[in-house]
Amino acid sequence: MTPSVSSVGTEQGEYAHLIPLQRQYAELGPDDPERSSLREQLINGYLPVAEHIARRFAGRGEPLDDLMQVATVGLINAVDRFEPDRGSDFFSFAVPTITGEVRRYFRDHGWSTRVPRRLKDLHVAIRSALAELSQQLGRAPRPSEIAERLGLPVSEVIEGLQAGEAYRSSSLDEMLGSGDGKATLGEFIGGLDSELALIDNREALRPLLAQLPPRERTIIALRFFRQLTQTQIAEQVGISQMHVSRVLRQTLAYLHEQMAGSD
């Protein structure tokens, strides 16, 4: 039991200059032209915080670069959502937000590497059937009821249930997705470019994303920059959750392939 104690921003001066910017940023209207440059300054300014958190999780089987990206996404969320006039300081808000993002990544990624594809799809399908049936029946469904809904043998549903998290109505990623349902699809996409500007290998990624068909681009944006769940994306885009899952998988594989090729 070696406690790993570390600190962020103990040098008071290090982030002090960002405080007035934070306030200014929060006070600007959504359409203010100054907004995006302020946002960039804030994100860049606080980047060491994200980096610090990413490093804490390094050496656990995930590349540091990936962790940095994930932590940066968490930081962006924190910068965008922080309300300085609520009286708390930025760190109180940003550290759990960023840490949550990285932890979620570990969980999702761990799940996806440990569990075979078929079971993962099954798990996703069961989770959505579970939610629907619970609402319709006014109680939790039986495995046979889930099986009937999905057109699968009961034995497969039981296997899917046992595969893990299917018992949870809502995992962490769903929780975060429920954060702001107010933004429109256009805003999601509009935010994409500025968010991408912070990703290390943006030069390679940006043209690739631009080339994607609009639906694929939208789905990637909703999943990775808005952290919507596959179910929520399915609702927004108007296709099934299984389909979203397939599109995500294929698109990511394509992007990875292209990125590898461009190195």
Partner: peptide, 19 residues
């Protein structure tokens, strides 16, 4: 988090054990 906002203090993250 009282009314007097503290200067930027360290946000520490401790794990009970590394793993």
């Amino acid at each position: 988090m009282g009314l007097t906002r503290p200067a930027l203090y360290g946000a520490r993250v401790d794990s009970e054990s590394p793993a």
